[in-house]
Design a protein around this nucleic acid. Sequence first.
DNA 1: CTGTTAGCGCTTTCAT
DNA 2: ATGAAAGCGCTAACAG
Lengths: 359, 359
Amino acid sequence: MAKKIRIKDIAALAGVSAGTVDRVLHNRGSVAEDKRLKIEEVLKKMNYSPNIHLSAISLKKTYRFVIAIPDFSEGEYWFFAEKGIRQAFETYSALDIVCEFCYYNHFDLFSCRDSFEQVILHKPDAVIIGPTFRDETIHLSNQLSDMGIPYVFIDSAVEGASPLAFYSSNPYTCGYLIAKLITNITPKGADIALLQAIRIGDESANATILRKAGFMAYYNEHNLQNKLYRVNYSALDNEQNEKLLNDFFKDNQETKGAVILNSRAHVITDYMKKHEIHNIKFVGIDLTEKNNQAIREGCIDFLIGQRPEQQGYMAVKTLIQYLVFGKSAQVTNYMPIDIIVKENADLYSGLTDFVLDTD
Amino acid sequence: MAKKIRIKDIAALAGVSAGTVDRVLHNRGSVAEDKRLKIEEVLKKMNYSPNIHLSAISLKKTYRFVIAIPDFSEGEYWFFAEKGIRQAFETYSALDIVCEFCYYNHFDLFSCRDSFEQVILHKPDAVIIGPTFRDETIHLSNQLSDMGIPYVFIDSAVEGASPLAFYSSNPYTCGYLIAKLITNITPKGADIALLQAIRIGDESANATILRKAGFMAYYNEHNLQNKLYRVNYSALDNEQNEKLLNDFFKDNQETKGAVILNSRAHVITDYMKKHEIHNIKFVGIDLTEKNNQAIREGCIDFLIGQRPEQQGYMAVKTLIQYLVFGKSAQVTNYMPIDIIVKENADLYSGLTDFVLDTD
DNA sequence: CTGTTAGCGCTTTCAT
DNA sequence: ATGAAAGCGCTAACAG
């Protein structure tokens, strides 16, 4: 085990004082060029990296975080993302962080627009965005970029923005894998239903579009002949939903498989249970509490897990590293895509203790 | 966001000084009973927990860790476990930790015995054990228990020992899931081969026995009629292996699926590739580098992932929490069981950056 | 431009 | 038994 290297050690090796090393570390200027070079050389050679938790106690600065994500109920997807965010704040409890949450309804474009306007008003030092609507997200991103405020996307990224980083699963791969799974567990050539949510003010969410592309890619690459029905459902209006699904399932009794490219699988399995529709294989996304229930009961065959806690945690961590040391992380960060079945579902849920840290 | 609570705050609320609170926190005695009770009450009410990274700088104590695990080459299972262990030491870099590794050959009982004898000689403050052979592990555990030295198991646990905690996947569930996967991707009733390693001095490793139990349980619960061949192979002797596998595959051309309950899947797929045996579905364990290669090439259909890095990381973390604050964690800790296929394999490998931390 | 110093939260030693 | 004080690594304000 290498002995710990302290600022003092670096200082000695470079023939300066600790204060000067610190100035270099934080780019605070007022350091002679030759000494700066010398210090940077020593830092690199010794592979020094300061203990951020120790930095924190000396730093009196208060960091204002704003989190702009969809609202949620307990056990839903964004619940877990927020859990990860709060966990990160715990881990960095030595830092003085204040945090505002700007929630929006992610089925409602206008709600998102309102919410995003609030973000700037909070004068944040850092922002975490859960994008749903493309144009609104770009608009906010541009404002933040202009003001020099760093921001990180979680759940999905948006083309045309310049976040410090984003943490999401690769939606294309997700869709691709879903296609593989559903076709592997349904008879060859069977009809498949593709459920999609109705949104207010926009036809489809950002991530969902990309997942669909991956899904279709699998079909094309494998020359699949399965008939594919696009079925609308409503996540907001139960009655409307009932009607929409009735229309489809009455007329298409031959459907053997169904997939949904967002976390509302349970809405569909609830309907199926109620109407005693069995023998339809079902693949969905996200281990929400309700989906967990459904997978236990055998109503869902596969779920794709996206590690929302970890995304939230990493977003905070990345921003802190940047704010404190100006360290920019890797921009593109795709999470592992977990394949969840009845047997391993329990092990994935509520596992916030099994988490790690790296630097 | 709740304001940070410091020892000083607790002290003020309890009407004592910071020093006294610290004495209570660390059970260092010399505190009047009534004050102790008062302080403990305040601690609980305020839900105080000290920042361990800050504690660390004041603590000058050196902690001696000994890690007794199987030896490995780069990219093998234990390589990743050790990676997680080292990562944890990084995270807790404020602590002064020295660490000795006692490796043993996990196909050789006697090597294990020798290695475990070394452990005690290092006079460790804490030990991490990767158990393979039951009796040797129990023997070491008893010695450690007698000396009051905390130890944690990773990869698998051993009945009859009293570790501070263990981190492993549930071997029974692992085996069960492997059975489900192989029977789902092979024709109904098809012959299945169960590959098992020859070991020196012992018939089978601890974890493997339990996995086999889970595997068989699935068979029994589902009344499967598949013929099951137990096939020996050698992980150490290539020539012997060639012969063993020849014997089996020549005589059993009807085998449609194969599973292996340890991380050497690639040994078998290498053989199959060499002998141009195709059309055998294959399920194995652990995303080692070589297995990763095999899954990419399509030689393996499913791999079960056990998160070795995370196990190692958690083992260190648990021991540190115990050593510094006497905090005992939960004893039984089953990791998520990852299901890995060609499409998501890349996302699981080399992902040591995507890790979290909680307290 | 640079070294010195005080102070962050936590622990421990040393008087009391 | 207890509080005051010093010191851990790191940072920032202050002298020079």
